[in-house]
Design a protein around this nucleic acid. Structure first.
Lengths: 327, 327
DNA sequence: CTTATACCTGTAACCGGTTACACACGGATG
DNA sequence: CATCCGTGTGTAACCGGTTACAGGTATAAG
């Protein structure tokens, strides 16, 4: 590897001068500057970020922690974060937490050990010591925190909308699927839906689920129609689960949306491709990722922060698993 | 941040001794060891990986470069890589290349600047200088390279199988969609399919496509049935494109698989959830990711390497977009 | 009793950058 | 002519670890 010393020798100057050229600070004579730049080009030199990071005690690295990149919702967040970071010359150290505290801690620790300058995390416990004790900025993505920077969608409102649309379109026996209890956004959606149902005195049932994986989802879908064969409206905890419900409804030869309406959550790629296509609550995941990255960069670079919590609105995507509303 | 000096002072020894305890090498008296370990615990000390990396000229970081994490195929690869790396105490610096040489180069450069000890890349040009000039191990994932370590699925055979199954199930006017010409696996699938079609003297047409994104795919699907309204079998370049074709077929009120059969490629989550579910060529993406990570680790740790190229078999997943074959 | 050897520990150089500080030079100012 | 200041450059300390090397002690071997 070529080092700053090689460049200095080649250009006939000291390492300090090369460093000044590199960073564009201090005085450097124009002729010297060109000589150094030429040597840099000739030797194809790029500075070692590790050495820089050690002295300055900060790197150009960001830690990104998501529950599971295989869940189709998260790649959109990840890509939003990556694009924004890439454009601002930051790089990502990436890890999957599986919503497990242990893995989360391990990652946070190695983030710190590698001098990351900021962290973006989807955690269910923003108040955990591993976060409150960090002395670098953290942005919580897809998760709410009262007093710490976060970027999230209005899950409660999403749940409310889902329930309203369900009732508006004529479902009388609604089943609300409650996602994993320890996953915050899942809980909020659920609460939002139940709120509306209670307010209006509607009949509804709850089916608790414990995971978002497809194989598990198929089991929940089976269970749903076994326990509540007469349900005519299902508010699913996300689009994966909704897909499984749709598939099971087909298997039972129920007509969708005539016999049973289904509303999902997230609006992943899959949703628009299903037949019938899935009505769902859209979250602007890619934009949320970008926003989280922008916010983190502002925090890192110490600019004035307007709002340190950004809530994105959600939107009902009317597709084919809900009935048309007569106008 | 607490440093090794703080620990040394607290334990009343030199930094060298602390280092020895940390790394478990050299002689350390049992009593000293416990004292040091106690101080480490009390101060909640973890060594700075950046300093380590600088001296040893190697880190515990791996560079992972994928075309686009939003394409549903890649998260599976990524997760496979991540799981295997995580279990072996390596961390990932992750980037999306969008199949663009420029972005690829930028990432490779910052990988090097950060002292990564290995790289896993899905590139279309493994022979590019940026790879051949690297003096750290590189494993090419989902891409073939003759003489360099790589992990990939048998795309050509996949294409052959698709064509065979298509014909076996009675399609007479097959349309083969050719993926982006510069994406190697897409090309191989295409070539495999055409090979079989030629061998058997079957009638077929080719539709060239230039991207894998869903919006573009919908355009290609439209174009396909406009140009070849009589086609009764479509071999799509991947499952996303296949989904778009399926949707368009529905729109045109063609029956699937009676009027037109469709075979995709990849076997992403989506495929089994569509209605009718999508027949496709399965690639074991998650396992491929793990295998690439394992291979890279072996390369890094200098163990004996049995095979430096690993080809995974593909498999026809018979679902509902192909007709049953009479037995 | 001398010497070899295993065990234990500390000092200091080193990794590749950044930057505080010292110094030198030349023109402007009084 | 003395002083000051802007410009330009080099020396060396520093970041937080690792490790070569030296040196000291205790025990075993000759």
């Amino acid at each position: 590897m070529t080092t700053i010393k090689d460049v200095a020798k080649q250009a006939g100057v000291s390492v300090a001068t090369v460093s000044r050229v590199l960073n564009g600070n201090g005085y450097v004579h124009e002729d010297t500057r060109s000589k150094v730049e030429q040597s840099i080009r000739e030797l194809n030199y790029t500075p070692n970020e590790v050495a820089r990071s050690l002295y300055k005690r900060k790197s150009k690295l960001i830690g990104l922690l998501l529950p599971d990149i295989m869940n189709p919702y998260f790649p959109q967040l990840a890509r939003g974060v990556e694009d924004e970071m890439q454009e601002n010359d930051y790089r990502l150290i990436f890890g999957n937490s599986d919503e497990k505290k242990q893995k989360e801690m391990e990652y946070i620790q190695t983030f710190v050990q590698n001098n990351v300058v900021g962290v973006i995390s989807s955690t269910n416990d923003p108040e955990a010591d591993m976060y409150t004790g960090l002395n670098i900025p953290v942005v919580f993505l897809d998760r709410t925190s009262n007093d710490r920077p976060s970027v999230f969608a209005d899950g409660r409102e999403g749940g409310r909308i889902a329930a309203q649309e369900m009732m508006l379109r004529g479902s009388k026996e609604i089943t609300v699927m409650q996602g994993p209890a320890d996953v915050r956004p899942a809980l909020e959606r659920f609460e939002g839906a139940v709120e509306v149902l209670e307010e209006r005195g509607a009949a509804y049932q709850v089916l608790k689920t414990t995971s978002f994986s497809l194989t598990d989802a198929e089991g929940f879908a089976y269970e749903l129609f076994r326990q509540y064969p007469d349900t005519d409206g299902v508010i699913a905890s996300n689009d994966i689960v909704a897909s499984a419900v749709l598939k099971e409804a087909h298997r039972l030869e129920k007509r969708v949306p005539e016999d049973v309406q289904i509303i999902g959550f997230d609006d992943i790629l899959l949703s628009s491709l299903l037949a019938p296509s899935l009505s769902t609550i859209h979250q602007p995941a890619y934009e949320m990722g970008r926003a989280a990255a922008r916010l983190l960069i502002e925090l890192i670079e110490g600019q004035h922060i307007e709002r340190s919590s950004i809530e994105f609105p959600v939107e009902f995507m009317e597709r084919q698993t809900t009935r048309k509303v007569e106008s």
